[in-house]
Nucleic acid binder design. Sequence first.
DNA 1: ATGCTGACTATGT
DNA 2: TACATAGCCAGCA
Length: 115
Amino acid sequence: MPTNSDRYARIYAVVRQVPEGRVATYGQIAALAGIAGHARQVGYALHALPDGADIPWQRVINARGEVSPRASGGWAAGLQRHLLEEEGVAFDARGRVDLARCRWEPEERPRSPRR
DNA sequence: ATGCTGACTATGT
DNA sequence: TACATAGCCAGCA
């Protein structure tokens, strides 16, 4: 049984798999981490991330395809968008990403022979 | 222990 | 498309 600490580890492990130039939603990360339906905990886990963590946290956005506004201090949101743009993720005039195009599509094949 | 908060999502209007 | 509600659950006072 996964403990609460393991959940964070799982979340981070999944986020680490998101390739450059791609984004994933909180719900997506949650599902892949084995805690489907607990998207909020994903956001919480990322919030607790220390500076310099080897995690591409900027690639995790909400289901609307937009960078989630922080409750306190918005500097991180601006940085997130900046980092994504440098990776090649395009934002439209409303500051949203085209999920249909930039969404990361993980290949779930835990043991299936590659192709 | 209880209650509130929050980097969310799905559904209804 | 945008706003309002409800459901969700870990962390913290």
